[in-house]
Amino acid sequence: MTRFVRPAALLLVAAVTLVLPATLDDSALAVYILLGLAAIVTAGVSLLMGYAGQVSLGQGAFYAIGAYTAALLSLGGVPPLVGLLAAPVAAAVFALVIGTPLLRLRGHHLAFATLAMQLILLSLAGQLEFTGGDIGLQAIPQFSLGSFEASGAAAYAYMTWAGLAVVMLITHNVISSRPGRALRALATSETAAASSGIPVGRYKLVVFALSATFAGLAGGIYCFYTGYVAPGSFPVLISIQYIVMAVVGGLGTIWGAVVGATAITLLVQGLDRLASLPGMPTYAPSVLSYAVYALVLIVVVLFMPRGLVPALSRRPDRRPRR
């Protein structure tokens, strides 16, 4: 039975994903694209938290590194495709370098250190000349490939969701294989993992870098879509948002990232409408989103500790993967 349900469900999701951009207006398309980008970053967070047991509050920094890398290269005249591919590579390299000392920390120490990393990077980007200071980088060329130029939002929507599909496929393949088993093993017990010959430190570093790669890719697509990047595009709140999305969707589930990103994005959109009603104070939107993140996190942890995906796809005999 399930053998036919799964491919059918996949086809349905693929069809909806393909048809949606053609039917949405520009403001809805913007939400659709940002949702897809958030899901890409969240897939990495979910991998890192769900399988390697690490918490990063600095995922927004890797997103920013990807965006700035692609932006700087394109403004320097490099073909956009090269810029787009360089974005995840730059983020990964940065993660490997900074992860070597950072990953010696555990639990909330690591979370704070990654948060500090993002704050430092943002303030650097806001002060350095080549990153354009607080104003950032503007007039980034459109993404193009040969004679094709991605001018409308729909093209970026397809790019985003294709990127998400690739990220999900990579995640799935990695998790169900030798390195994935090693990750799931060290999430349970680093001691037992090491005694099976798994180099625990190196594996944590590689997942950290992989999660940064995903964030970097999303950042690359983002910079071509918006045409500008500035420190203000990558607030700390965005890193918290990825964690909330990952937890809400279900840590370490392949679909959790998409479900979590969708749920939170729609919720925040709804609240933004509410907060911008006449008579609401100007700070209402940001206060509301912080409050909602906290509330959603608490509710999910209390009532669905494994997240939405496992809660919805409850199978009596087979416990979903953590």
Partner: peptide, 23 residues
């Protein structure tokens, strides 16, 4: 120290980690 979130077979497969190479 059994690894959670894995089947029994996958747990045993982890044992081969040190002598296999796929990265």
């Amino acid at each position: 120290r059994v690894f959670g979130g894995m089947t029994v077979r996958e747990n045993v497969m982890v044992g081969s980690h040190g002598r296999t190479r796929a990265g």
